[in-house]
Amino acid sequence: MKTKLYVLYGGKSVEHEVSLKTAVTVLLSIDESRFEVYPVYITRDGLWCTPGRLAKEGLTVERLIARPSYRDTASSIGEILSGVMALPGPKVVMPLLHGSNGEDGTVQGLMELLNVPYVGNGVLASALALDKAMSKEILAQAGIRQTDYRVCRFDEWSSDGMAVVRDVEARIGYPCYVKPASLGSSIGISRCTNRGELRAGIQEAFAYDKKLVFEREVAGREIQVAVIGNERPLASLPGEFIHDRAFFDYESKYMDKRLTMSIPAELSAGLTERIRELAVRAYRAHGCEGLARVDFFLDGEGELFLNEINALPGFTNFSMYPVMWERTDGTSYAALIEQLIGHAVARHEDKQTIRYSR
């Protein structure tokens, strides 16, 4: 019997479009001789629905979008759970939901309640990795070096915004970055070189979150590492994007056709191994399982700073994560998906040995 694979995509998130691009690539790559695929679309309003079984031929983002039968979230989720995900036989869920309401542990919690295996990180690791402020606390406790940073909540800003600005200038300085704490794809992030840009960046970031992170800029290279696995995670060879922008923003990541990947990144053998070791340490410190991408800054003096850990990295066939694995050990995109499904099933089976009664 084929395993039923439920692919969740879209979502109530500003990274909705990124999720759709990821879903198209994944759906085109799944081995249909092994998996019976059921796409589940989550609208921008958080309603769950399905476009039905989709043929690979001519599959586009537009064909992934479906119209929900209900106008309230609870009823739409109930329809999918009782009508689609309740089908008999072995099953696994693959959440391809970038950002809030999907990458942050919310959907993962639902899958735990349903007691079904799902690809990627669990509730805690997902929540920690998406929340940059909490992630930095974890990294600090693990003794992993980071750039100088400061966290600000909306109530602090609304009470005395000028005090926040002066404190950032004193502790962080310029250039600095202001970021929504819980978001990805560089959305809502501003690079600030003076007070006016800082105030504007704060206003922009608070449109996406009620908690912000300020960071000192590290001038140099951005190095990325792909990590996969559960109890014994493995790190890929490091890679980097070659670009000439001061700030690698959303448009740079997804629309700049001049971007080129350098995999493996041109680093000494010793530095390569140190980066891979630190990536695994950060992965374990967050309690990650399944996959994550760990990003570093390497300054002009050779000093290394961990930037962030991404629990659901970009996953199209042109994204850094799958390409790093292909160039590390020859793992194809389709084989990588099957590996991740295998890790999901293994973790789920391990959890079935836990006792819930005395």
Rank of each mutant, 00 (worst) to 15 (best):
W325C: 09
E273T: 14
D148P: 11
H16L: 06
K132P: 03
E112R: 14
I223Y: 00
P88V: 01
V165E: 05
E289I: 09
V107N: 04
R245E: 15
V178K: 05
H348G: 11
D131Y: 06
Y6P: 01
A292P: 00
V168G: 06
R216L: 08
Y70E: 07
P68I: 02
M85F: 07
G300A: 14
A292K: 08
G122Y: 00
A140R: 15
I80Q: 02
K91S: 09
G300C: 11
E103C: 03
L96R: 07
R355C: 13
R358I: 12
Q203P: 00
D299M: 09
L87R: 11
M1R: 10
S126V: 01
K211D: 09
H348F: 13
D31K: 11
Y250T: 08
G78K: 01
D160T: 12
R347K: 15
Y149M: 10
R355W: 14
L54R: 08
P68M: 04
R245D: 14
D350I: 14
R232D: 12
N101C: 13
K179F: 02
E217S: 12
G105H: 03
L59P: 06
W48Y: 12
A346C: 11
I341K: 06
R67D: 10
L336S: 07
R53C: 12
L234G: 00
A285K: 04
K179E: 07
V165D: 02
R293G: 05
D209G: 07
L8S: 07
G120M: 03
Q146L: 06
I144G: 01
P264G: 11
V92R: 03
T316K: 04
Q339E: 14
R63N: 10
S262Q: 10
E204H: 09
P175N: 08
A219K: 15
A142L: 05
L267P: 02
Y250M: 05
A207R: 15
S82E: 12
I354Y: 15
K2E: 14
G239W: 09
V151K: 08
A311D: 02
G109E: 03
R347L: 05
K132V: 01
R258F: 12
D209A: 13
Y250N: 09
S135M: 07
R327Y: 12
E273W: 13
A127P: 02
G161Y: 12
K132Q: 07
F318A: 13
P313Y: 02
A292C: 06
N115C: 13
E204T: 11
C288R: 01
L124N: 06
K21L: 14
I138A: 07
R258T: 13
G89A: 07
F248N: 04
R53W: 10
I263G: 00
L212M: 03
M111F: 15
L59Q: 03
S126E: 07
I30S: 09
L340F: 11
Q224N: 10
M134R: 14
N317C: 12
V7Q: 02
R232P: 00
P88I: 00
A133H: 12
A246W: 13
E137V: 15
